[in-house]
Simulated assay, not measured.
Amino acid sequence: MSQTGSSESISTGTFTLRGPYGRRAIGLSVAAAVGGFLFGFDSSVINGAVDSIQSDFALNSVITGFIVAIALLGCAVGAVLAGHLADRWGRLRVMFIGAILFFASSIGAGLAFSVWDLGFWRVIGGLGIGIASVVAPAYISEIAPRQIRGGLASLQQLAITFGIFVALLSDAVLAWSAGSANSVLWLGLDAWRWMFIVGAIPAAIYGILSFTVPESP
């Protein structure tokens, strides 16, 4: 590694970071932190839909609570598997798998025809965010210059918090637009279903980014 003034150049077998404190590393870290955004979004988006889910599927409080929490089971499994898969296949390929799982979960949960169907898609989404919660910070720590590694690692937590905020905000906007979460919004689907479906947008972005950023060294 060599430094001249405020500039830095770090060479690896995969790519070179140039600029003050590795500006490219900052951009790559922001891209990886989208996985943290998905984590926060998925953990909070159901808050705006839970009452409508309970009403539409005629659930008792126990089943309702189980459906809300079941995504964490998938998250735990995804977190356990992610490290082994990333070591075998590489960080970016596993990031892409996480994006696919979350994308499928968003669409499937929004179109769920029964509570158990919804629960299945919640578990699939949990697998995706469990993967992202492990691979994203690993990737950030591996590409970050040592001078700003701690600051870049904190992007993951910032992204999780921002994902929670966006999920709750989108829930409120969709419910307000339809009149209530249980009212039809677009294409004959209730607003609570769109709360899940909009999660496909950041999932697609995450998947695209996994093809555009370099593999970690």
Score class of each variant (00 low, 15 high):
S106L: 06
G90L: 10
G65R: 07
A79N: 06
W89E: 10
P137Y: 00
P20L: 07
V173T: 11
Y206I: 02
G48M: 09
G108N: 10
I160H: 01
L169M: 11
R88V: 14
A112V: 14
G207D: 10
M1R: 15
W116P: 07
A32N: 04
F196H: 11
V68R: 07
W116F: 15
A136N: 02
I124F: 08
F103Q: 02
G188L: 08
W192K: 05
F96K: 13
G19W: 03
H84F: 13
L38E: 00
I107P: 09
I140G: 00
G150D: 06
L81K: 03
D87N: 14
L155Q: 01
G207W: 13
Q54E: 10
Q3I: 15
A99L: 11
S7K: 14
A82L: 07
D117E: 13
V68S: 11
S43Q: 13
I97P: 03
L185M: 06
Y21I: 09
S216T: 15
A203N: 07
R193V: 05
S106C: 11
S29Y: 00
S141W: 01
Q156G: 02
P20S: 12
A136K: 03
V77L: 14
L158P: 02
S216P: 06
M95A: 08
A200E: 10
V198E: 10
S43M: 10
G22H: 04
G119L: 13
G110M: 06
Y139L: 04
F113N: 13
Q157T: 08
G22M: 07
S6F: 13
F165Q: 02
V50W: 00
M195A: 07
S141A: 15
D171R: 03
L127P: 05
G35S: 11
F120H: 10
V134M: 14
I201V: 13
G188V: 04
G90D: 05
F102W: 09
I160L: 08
L118A: 11
A104H: 06
L81I: 13
I129K: 00
G126T: 12
F39G: 01
G188M: 09
I205Q: 03
I208Q: 03
A49M: 08
Y139N: 01
G78N: 09
R88D: 07
S180G: 12
A136T: 06
A138Q: 09
Q156P: 02
A112D: 05
A159M: 15
F165V: 12
G27W: 06
G40W: 06
L81V: 13
L169W: 10
E215R: 15
I124K: 07
W89A: 15
L174G: 04
M95G: 01
L101Q: 11
V50G: 05
G13T: 10
G98I: 03
S11R: 12
S170M: 14
A25K: 04
I107V: 15
F39E: 02
L174Q: 06
D190L: 06
P202Y: 09
S29D: 01
I140Y: 00
V198I: 14
G199C: 03
G110N: 09
